[in-house]
């Protein structure tokens, strides 16, 4: 059900994968931010799976930007995976679609 907002982190193929689902807005984007920053702890590559995100606002985008900048500061890999159409539309609007490394699948991100 798309009504459920959730993010969970797991290890897949040596990558810390943050799976996000639902509508990311101001009401819980702080949670996403904390999950991403926590996943970055430990130095592993981090990927954020956005395939189940049906909506994202600028506070959600800000959480992704902060994760990206944090990783870059530590030369850590950070990518977005399986970006859903609504998320991609917002990234484009904010002209961030070329800033993030974006991969269609986790396998691509792991290469």
């Amino acid at each position: 059900m798309s009504d459920v907002n959730d993010c969970a982190t797991e290890e897949v193929q040596g990558i810390r994968l943050v799976r996000v689902r639902g509508e990311v807005d101001l009401s819980w984007s702080q949670q996403l931010r904390k999950s991403i920053l926590a996943a970055l702890n430990g130095g592993r590559p981090v990927a954020v799976d956005l395939s189940q995100v049906t909506y994202i606002d600028s506070s959600g985008i800000a959480a992704l930007v902060e994760g990206f900048q944090n990783a870059r500061g530590k030369s850590q890999r950070f990518s977005l995976v399986a970006v859903s159409k609504p998320v991609h539309a917002v990234l484009e609007l904010a002209r961030l679609d070329r800033v993030f490394p974006i991969f269609a699948t986790l396998e691509d991100a792991a290469k």
Binding site: D57, S58, I61, A62, A63, V65, E66, F68, Q69, V90, L93, A94, R95, L96, V99
Partner: peptide
Amino acid sequence: DLSECRPGGLGVNLIDTV
């Protein structure tokens, strides 16, 4: 200015663009 990549302050840009 959107050319600088940083979190926050994006909302007004989105409104302005749309």
